[in-house]
Amino acid sequence: MKQKIGLTTGILLILTWCLLPVAWIISLSFKSQEAITNGSPGFFPSPGGTAGFANYSDVLADEQFRRAIINSIGISLIATTLSVLIATLAAYAIARLEFQGKKFVLTTALVIAMFPVVSLVGPLFDLWRTIGIYDTWPGLIIPYMSFTLPLAIWTLSAFFREIPWEMEQAAQVDGATSWQAFRKVIVPLAAPGVFTAAILTFFFAWNDFVFGISLTSTEAARPIPAALSFFVGADPFNRPASLLAAAAVVATIPIVIIVLLFQRKIVAGLTSGAVKG
């Protein structure tokens, strides 16, 4: 009984920890901008300082922010797709093939995972403006791919190692063509891993800030985190806290949806193969 109380308390603590700041940002997004300018302390909007959904409609009416959403979704999706594709090839080789340089690949991936991105943005900015992809989608997609590859390769090779590849041969013996064997046997087994790697990669690209502010300068490519930090409200001298909060909530919705749908897979991806033995 005592243990049960302790456990329940623990669960409540975890839920509070995780959700209180989220609740706060939602609550803040309902404070009116006038109340913010004038100062409106407290967790909940004051009775006279409630904005309803005005902040949301303002944010969604903001052309720059709408562009940022499109940029973020487009760039993150393309980077994720390409990164997972390339990582799948590499992870397959690492998990199933013997070849020279395997160690080099894994070392490179590890070093890049630890790389301080800030030390790259200067030269990268220089390089990008020389070859003309500064402030474009490819200008962000390429670094996102590079920096998500390690994560994707490690996750995928961990998954691929668990796949019983002999089943493919077994299926072929049973009369399936090699394509059928691959599609009916291997794809279903590999899909969860690919999927998990894709989600984690997407999270990374969605979250990135350093590249986002350094390699863009207009809404042609500026992603959401950069747009948030440059957000302009009615009052250029005060951060439009409640508008920003509304924008932040909007930017978090895709994350919440992904988490709700795939929480099991994400946890598996983060932990499976993270630690062996």
Binding site: D58, D62, W137, P138, T218, A220
Partner: peptide
């Protein structure tokens, strides 16, 4: 209200990859 930039939309709305 400041969220205007409607002209910017007209001019740049379709330009995805280039400024």
């Amino acid at each position: 209200r400041r969220l205007v930039a409607a002209l910017a939309t007209l001019a740049c709305g379709s330009a995805l990859l280039t400024a």
